[in-house]
Design a protein around this nucleic acid. Sequence first.
DNA 1: GAACATCGTTTCATAATATGAAATCAAGTA
DNA 2: TACTTGATTTCATATTATGAAACGATGTTC
Lengths: 261, 261
Amino acid sequence: MIGSVAKALDILTLFSKTHPVLTLAEISRRLEMPKSTAHHLITTLAAYGFIEQTDDGAYALGKSLIPLTQHVLVNVELRDRAAPLLRALADSCNESVYLTVRDGDAVLYIYAIESSQRLLARTAVGDRAPLYCTSVGKAVLAWLPPDEVECLLNTAPLNTYTPYTLTDPATLLGDLEATRQRGYSLDNQEHELNTFCVGAPIFKADGHVVGACSVSGRDPQIVEGRLPALAEQIVGTAQEISRHMGYVPAHMSMVRSRPQR
Amino acid sequence: MIGSVAKALDILTLFSKTHPVLTLAEISRRLEMPKSTAHHLITTLAAYGFIEQTDDGAYALGKSLIPLTQHVLVNVELRDRAAPLLRALADSCNESVYLTVRDGDAVLYIYAIESSQRLLARTAVGDRAPLYCTSVGKAVLAWLPPDEVECLLNTAPLNTYTPYTLTDPATLLGDLEATRQRGYSLDNQEHELNTFCVGAPIFKADGHVVGACSVSGRDPQIVEGRLPALAEQIVGTAQEISRHMGYVPAHMSMVRSRPQR
DNA sequence: GAACATCGTTTCATAATATGAAATCAAGTA
DNA sequence: TACTTGATTTCATATTATGAAACGATGTTC
């Protein structure tokens, strides 16, 4: 572990939604390093375009970070294979479509076709969301080995995001069982009010879940009248993506209980 | 400039479309540094998730890079303001819609609503394209100060991408003048065969062009029969984005000739 | 099946280099 | 005018990154 490099990366990860712009003094203060050290590091990061200086002399993340995402492994192996299938899906269902990968105790959004119905301005790509209260997260949880699920539920607390969030482990486990039976997951405003989603798991060649995709929107009919049609489409798309990942469908019972190594 | 940090960033930028996965030996060879040095740097980058190890022990860019993009300055200041307007545009024209910023002698794609008509699998977000042969690039060039345009044309050569690419400076300058007259730019397969685009410039508060947005697709009618309607929509959207950026529309003649400091 | 490549990983003495106190410059404020 | 609070630059010192070499693991060749 190289100290100066770690400090440079600490600076990059210090920028956040609430603090997209930071002054040198703030960086130095929050990371407990001398101003001059922070400045040396920032100068180097700025030379590569990873950090930019704002008009008023403060600092922010630079645009050179954006091209790097094109070569990130999951984007090459999963996103670029899934994208055409997801676009076709978005076309036929007229709602936002998302692609996520599991990242520890969260899902990371890596691709989105966002409909004009979307409530939030900013794209979901780059966001992390909990596993237990999103359709994509629950699709992952439902097909994860039981001991890993138990471990995850014991580690992180089940926070309440909306009145619909499932915060009782037993209820959640029941929902995951129902999800396995159905073959797809549901999110009835559990993470965000007025957002309804249907999700399905994506498997890689070794039989493990890598992530999930979902159809998401403000229309309550997504989890009501439109559900049968949407579920068939999202599950079909997820299966085809899995096949593109080299996954050979086995008996569902095998996949459900515990994927082999 | 801190040497070890620079070397770490050199490693990150070494990954490319053709080489998304690299072995330690390759990295060490191509950057002319001892294997052990590269290994020390990679270990640090891996601890932050910026690099991941593949199943066979080689290295690739890690997913932790993706969340960083949410806080990149242009994404916060431009993309997040433009996104809702661009989604509405995509909705009404049923083609791919792109948002780009100028980055030196190129445009960088920072947001996209990609239709199922798109030829390429992978998303455009993160791609760079030349200024002189894309609708977004030419929209930027047309509203850049003349001396800067001249400088750009003298520096980089005009490469041929398709038989339609404008490689003669005089012809290009004529096209830029026509673009200013019209208020929007056209791309008739100049960068990629079977891709037709209409683009419009986006200005920030100080009156300078920051980037451009475009409607893009495989339908030749985009630059023919559908052009009048599409042009009005893309120009209207670009103007509204500019207004969101704090730009106060002046007499077009002023903007055209040379934005003031 | 033994010898040989080639790859990733670890070690550790040494010299190179990051560090950070302090001085400086620039802008805004009382 | 004096006083903050920024960013920036300098430079002597000690910390720390460096890289030669050895190691272990895997796969290939003859």
